[in-house]
Amino acid sequence: MQKNNLVSIIILITLSFLMMSCGGAPPFLARNSSSPPLIYCNDATGHKTGATPIVLNGACTCTPTENHYNRCLKEGTINSTLIYTQFLELYTSKGIKTDLDHRGCNNRCQWGPHVVFGGKCMATPTPGTLNYEKVISGIQSLTMHEVEHDNEN
């Protein structure tokens, strides 16, 4: 009798495991196909005209190349008396690393996360990744799954 009970218990446990593992695919709902508003521009998105460099509390995270410096001068988003080396110094003095230092890390390097989220890495994030979308939208809680276009972010 005891032997029969033991066998029944083992069979029950085995069946339970089998049923748990044969659940099939979870339900699926496709991600929202429309993006949140673009807040921070960078080299991949192209510069947003009139956006002030992030080091001056703006929303531009484009690489501070000489071309970009001239563009900022033209748009009046930086002080016209600033020379290029001083413009660069705005970044280097804060320990910020850009594409001029290293590229392609997707802000996963030792200086990450991206400056938008308080880190020191301003390398252009990699298009086609969640990090890229988070940085541009400024929504750190953005996921590949639940997409909430929360205006408070």
Binding site: P26, T143, M144, H145
Partner: peptide, 17 residues
């Protein structure tokens, strides 16, 4: 260049991270 990969349910609003 944008590199992407196919993957079953890579993005799924029903999946919580």
């Amino acid at each position: 260049l944008v590199q992407l990969r196919s993957l079953f349910q890579l993005q799924n609003q029903k999946k919580k991270e």
